[in-house]
Design a binder for these strands. Structure first.
Lengths: 120, 120
DNA sequence: AGTATCTACAACCATTTGGTTATACGTTAC
DNA sequence: GTAACGTATAACCAAATGGTTGTAGATACT
């Protein structure tokens, strides 16, 4: 079941912005494969723990990962729902494109056909 | 036919970064529906022409729109190929997730049985 | 020719971003 | 209890971002 929550502009901004960094995308990839503590993630990149911790915070703010305490560690887990919501956003653009092509096709076909659904 | 061009990290960065702004997403949407001159786009937003022109430049740099001269205007056209490439990127993350679930399933089932089909 | 329109580009400014180091705090291990 | 580990957070910095105004070059209109 897909929840189809309407995302605000700001939320969409955050999701795409979070994905616009190679380190963060790699963190998402790793934590989709399996949970990882922040420090184990930090060990994988040539930057400070604090920098990685910030990246994780950005991803968490976008909902792309969740973090839950486990002893003194915080385990980071990729959130497939957020990925799906981002996919739906891109699907919407594809749909716009296909609709446009559909309209052009209809235009080139018999002129009697009523104009297909058209929105602003 | 899909060309499956391998995108560099920097290119992926640019695509997601370009999508991380509501005005730019709206420009993509509009220009997927139909071509528009930069000034006609600028008329739609409460910011200067120069600002909109910059947004278009960012989208062009990410390959999300193309621009071609038409008299004194530059017509902006949304590029569905770039959208599709972005979709493929997100698909890759979904696939990682599904693979993980598949592996867990295989682990829980009797080791002889092949992993059952699993959907969300 | 002269004017209006469309665009590009430079210079500037405030804010955000992505990194750093240093400090403080909770948890685990000895 | 003390030391070591994992994390969060603050202060700081350089560079990028998103906006502005102003100037200048093409193209179109009359």
């Amino acid at each position: 079941m897909v929840v189809d929550t309407e995302l605000s502009d700001v939320e969409v901004d955050r999701i795409f912005r979070a994905l616009a960094d190679a380190t963060r995308r790699d963190i998402v990839r790793r934590t989709l494969v399996e949970e990882a503590s922040v420090s184990s993630l930090a060990a994988a990149y040539e930057m400070s723990f604090a920098a990685v911790s910030k990246h994780v915070a950005v991803l968490e703010g976008a909902g792309l990962v969740t973090k839950h305490p486990h002893g003194r560690e915080r385990l980071v887990r990729g959130n497939p729902d957020a990925i799906r919501r981002a996919q739906e956003l891109l699907d919407a653009y594809e749909r716009i494109w296909r609709d446009r092509i559909g309209r052009l096709d209809a235009l080139l076909a018999e002129p009697e056909t009523p104009a297909p659904h058209l929105t602003d």
